[in-house]
């Protein structure tokens, strides 16, 4: 009896012992699979597994695009790939440094797997991982070591083409926007682009780079005629650029209102309480990120002359 309880307890409290189920994925275009994250704030219940992550299958290779919010989610993604195809994973593409996109990296670490990221990704990992690892334990109940955060073995300065076998992916390293290390993935075969956190749908955009830079990147991307667009958070987009307009409007609202406050000689504390609240009803998790967005945007814009 006691033994039974012990066995039960050990199963409940050590998920690694349990057979991990494969992560649920949806094929949004031929060979492009996405796991859609829920719109939640990272916490000890979801363990940071909140982002859209997935993979693209070619004839010789699979490219993983972001690995999830914790190592278990990474292993579950790996399982999902193995269920669908025998094609080996050759690449792990990290779209940027945020924990919900890179904490599953360790699940894919193999000598023949290349990790690809923006040229600034390694630096961002180095400057943040100390803090990230502490916070993962404290706030997500995710226990990581420095070796679990894997820096890119291949860096993208501007653009890089990789071939998965009759399937070419164009990776673009963007100037500072959502972060200073955003990378997007264009699948030429289906004219689909994986924008990751350059695009938020329904989930409030999170600014951790440059407001003006992000708007600039969006204005460029808007010129393209993509068939399918995969955001970092939110549903797949098939009406590009229509579904991107709310994000653009939100960022523009911050820009206009903060500039007006600066012109009046008002301070950051006032901006945090006043700017952008007309946008509140349009977004999920507004209360979790909006003030931070204003803070970050204000600190950027006060250097304009």
């Amino acid at each position: 009896m006691q033994l039974k309880i012990l066995v039960w307890l050990s199963l409940v409290f050590s998920p690694s012992l349990m057979a991990l189920p494969a992560l649920s994925v949806v094929e949004v275009e031929q060979g492009i699979y996405v796991h859609f994250g829920q719109h939640q704030f990272p916490n000890k219940t979801n363990h940071g597994a909140i982002a859209n992550i997935g993979f693209i299958i070619g004839e010789q290779c699979v490219a993983v695009i972001d690995t999830g919010g914790n190592p278990e989610q990474g292993y579950a993604l790996k399982k999902a790939i193995e269920k669908i195809t025998d094609t080996p994973v050759c690449y792990v593409i990290n779209t940027h440094v945020h924990p919900d996109h890179i904490y599953g990296n360790i699940a894919f670490k193999q000598p023949n797997v290349k990790f690809i990221g923006h040229k600034n990704l390694a630096r961002a990992m180095a400057t943040r991982s100390h803090y990230y690892i502490d916070k993962a334990a404290e706030q997500l109940d995710v226990h990581l070591l420095a070796k679990d955060i894997i820096a890119p073995t291949k860096e993208v300065k501007r653009q890089l083409m990789i071939d998965l076998g009759n399937r070419k992916l164009m990776l673009t390293a963007h100037p500072t926007a959502h972060t200073d290390n955003d990378l997007s993935v264009l699948d030429k075969k289906t004219n689909s682009v994986w924008l990751s956190d350059l695009l938020f749908v329904k989930h409030i955009p999170v600014l951790d780079g440059s407001l003006k830079g992000w708007l600039k990147v969006l204005n460029q991307l808007e010129q393209h005629d993509y068939k399918t667009v995969i955001p970092g958070h939110g549903a797949v987009v098939r009406d590009w650029p229509k579904s991107m307009q709310p994000e653009k409007q939100y960022l523009e609202r911050l820009l206009i209102e903060i500039r007006a406050m600066l012109a009046k000689g008002q301070f950051i504390e006032q901006a945090i309480e006043q700017v952008g609240y007309s946008e509140k009803s349009k977004w999920l998790l507004f209360d979790k990120y909006h003030k931070r967005n204003v803070t970050s945007a204000f600190a950027e814009l006060e250097w304009e002359d």
Partner: peptide, 27 residues
């Protein structure tokens, strides 16, 4: 607060480029 921003700056390159610039603002 939790989440993704760490206690460092967002855009290191931009900050390095401007290093040393100063300005006053008055009431």
């Amino acid at each position: 607060s939790g989440g993704c921003s760490a206690p460092i700056g967002n855009d290191l390159d931009a900050a390095m480029k401007r290093l040393g610039k100063m300005k006053f603002k008055f009431d």
